[in-house]
Simulated scan of single mutants.
Amino acid sequence: MKHLLLLPALLLTATLAQAQLYEARTSSVNFEKRTRDAVKVEVEASADWTRDFWQRWLKDTYNIKLKGDGVFGVGKRDNLTAKQVPMSSVSGQLIDLYSTILAPADTVTELSVWAATGPDTFLAASSSEFVALRSIVQSFGTAARQRAYRERVETAEKELAATTKDKEKLEKNRANMASNTKSNLEKIEQLKQQNLDNQRKSAEDSVKLLDNARLLELRQAQLERSRTRLLNLDRP
């Protein structure tokens, strides 16, 4: 009964956790020894996938190219920045865009984004510019969800096609083996019949061989008698 009572709670927790994925929310990061307001979004993907897609999405959508400053793993960048870039949907001024990627779990990655319009003028959560930044991150989250599920569909389609191909190959092999087995059984029956015929022919030939031996003996005796008579006729 206790386990049954825990089940709805576990399902609710899983549902809430799933609902947080791809949803932008206001949070904070520690940057340059100070707390900065930031927008965070969780993506159900690896850190590599999230980093690559975030960079590609910003380049395609806003023509903003991020650069790394800090090592993440082996040969990867943790902090991604774009200094003095235009993003009119956020501010009329050039902005410094910052982002960092963390992997709190094997299958979930957290993207944090914050921005500044000057050396120490970071966007506050209460500002309209921050709301616009959050809208951008939410758009990325939506795009990431669509891309992730599209890739899953593509992967599932490829796996299905590969499995179907394996099934067809196995069925073809099974049919070929069945046909080969049938052919072998037919050959075995033919060989059995041939062996029976050979045995019967051998028995017949054995009888004929005995008759031939008697006939040979008779012919030999006849030849000897004929030679003897011939010799007697040749004598004076």
Rank of each mutant, 00 (worst) to 15 (best):
E159Q: 14
K182W: 02
R214F: 02
A105C: 05
T13C: 14
T107L: 08
D78Q: 12
D166Q: 08
F122M: 03
Q20T: 12
Q146V: 13
P119T: 08
K2F: 11
Q146M: 12
E204Y: 08
A178T: 09
V29H: 02
K187I: 07
T142M: 09
K76Y: 13
D60N: 07
E154T: 15
K165I: 05
S135F: 02
Q138N: 11
S202Q: 15
K83T: 10
Q138A: 07
N63Q: 05
N30T: 15
D60S: 09
S46C: 06
E189D: 12
P104A: 11
L160Y: 13
L80C: 06
A156F: 08
A161M: 10
K165E: 12
A24L: 01
T26N: 06
Q84V: 03
E44P: 07
A124M: 13
S226K: 09
A19T: 10
V43E: 07
A132H: 05
A178H: 05
R152C: 10
L185M: 14
A47N: 02
A221C: 06
L58Y: 00
T109N: 05
A47P: 00
D78S: 09
R25F: 04
L80K: 03
W49C: 08
A9M: 08
L6T: 09
A24S: 14
G118H: 02
E159R: 10
L215V: 03
D37H: 10
G92K: 09
R174G: 08
K187E: 08
T35Q: 07
T13W: 14
Q220K: 11
Q18I: 06
P119V: 00
N195E: 09
S27R: 14
Y98P: 03
L209N: 11
A19V: 12
G75P: 00
F31Q: 05
K208N: 06
R227I: 03
R235I: 11
K76V: 14
E129Q: 15
S89Q: 15
